[in-house]
Write a protein that binds this DNA or RNA. Structure first.
Lengths: 233, 233
DNA sequence: CTAAGATAATTGGCTTGACCAGTTCAGTCA
DNA sequence: TGACTGAACTGGTCAAGCCAATTATCTTAG
């Protein structure tokens, strides 16, 4: 009975559904303040079960896109002026995402380089070592990649910033579901990413904020390039 | 074997479950990296159904407390830091929030100063004029304040960054409504904030990124100070 | 005896179907 | 006319089951 979404591969279903609904909202199908179809109906329209739809709605509710009123309905959050930037004429979201990461992580690492502790360096060292092992074992060190950036952010000593870095890594801020998450990089590209991580680590170890920032910027710039090459789309 | 949760609270069940699990994690019952019981078992232990438990897990997954690995299990996120302000044990959140805003908005305004358009400057000019009117009418220009920061972020041309700035302003990164939103500043403090905004505007108009960044940092630093004075807590 | 491969549990992912509990609103009756 | 009521919404929750990915176990070939 399901036809629209499925594809059964990439991400959890509730995330796909949430992205799809977000797209409908941003696309104007459901203007701010509007009530969405009832859960049962919406689920059928999207070709998914109600529990899955509910999971997506909870995600949307948490990120504030939607308000759920028991017995009444599901409403698009009515924050005025919220979508002004939506017409942004510039690059597509993947590019924006990487730019945003460069801006945020570049700022974060300035503090991290100044505040990083020996324990923090030790953690990073271990993450990189594990990452190298994973790569040479032919596996994709996605977790280590994420953990590295998150740990660097943690070293800033600011949990809010660390949270944002994690969100950006997980693509939780991309407005229009861009799903770049495929990530079928080759061992070679992963190896280059590792070396860039190493450069960042070295700069942190030297407590050199500006160098660390430069290395982080270079890394994210390269990451963007690698992505864009692999995703002709 | 149940009866642990159920308490006729108005809050939705998945939120109660999520809170309970969060408490268990923070309480050390499930140390970082540990694997939680299987969904079926955990649901039974908590006295709820599996779908409800799943909804709670999605909430926990989104806020990063937990990581779900298909076919493997549910793991406590191995972030060795900062569950602090969530447990309310050490209220560092306002300071961290303002630091995060300084880092992010400081980075954003670098791009904004370079890319700002005449239309963007016009919008900002109008916002500041309105803000001045509101202040002198004895009202709190909360909307104008928010709009100013958001519009500056928009001028960076990056919707992801703009989104983050909005989230930070709305304190959406603070878990479980810590909401410091009281904000009963006096007309005088608002007037000082306005002048700081004016300084930022002037730097943007002059297309001077570093000056704009400095003014933004100064503004947020002052904001933090104003808050801390008014909120002895 | 060891290591590689096949197999059986175990676990999360998703669906179907059902019933309960607030909310809405139109039809009813004073 | 207007307050009331109850049916028809709506979201909230639960139960049981099957599928797919992962992991643990056992078998078997070397």
């Amino acid at each position: 009975m399901n036809g629209s979404i499925k594809a059964a591969e990439p991400r959890r279903l509730y995330q796909q559904i949430a992205d799809q609904i977000r797209t409908l909202i941003n696309g104007g199908h459901f203007p701010a303040g509007a009530r969405l179809p009832a859960e049962r109906e919406l689920a059928q329209q999207l070709g998914v079960s109600r529990p899955s739809l509910r999971e997506a709605l909870i995600a949307l509710e948490i990120d504030g896109s939607v308000e759920i009123r028991m017995g009444s309905g599901i409403y698009v959050t009515a924050e005025p002026e919220r979508r002004t930037w939506q017409t942004g004429s510039m690059g597509e979201s993947p590019v924006e995402l990487m730019e945003a990461r460069a801006a945020v992580e570049g700022a974060v690492i300035l503090a991290a380089a100044a505040r990083v502790t020996p324990e923090g360096l030790k953690s990073l060292r271990q993450i990189l070592d594990t990452m190298r092992v994973e790569i040479e074992a032919g596996r994709k060190p996605l977790d280590q990649d994420r953990l590295f950036h998150l740990t660097v952010a943690t070293q800033s000593g600011n949990s809010v910033l660390a949270h944002i870095v994690g969100d950006l890594f997980d693509e939780r801020h991309s407005p229009i579901s861009a799903q770049i998450r495929t990530r079928f990089e080759t061992p070679d590209t992963w190896h280059r990413a590792l070396e860039e991580h190493e450069a960042i680590y070295a700069a942190l170890e030297a407590h050199d904020p500006l160098l660390a920032q430069a290395m982080m910027h270079a890394h994210l710039e390269e990451s963007k390039r690698r992505w864009m090459e692999n995703e002709p789309r």
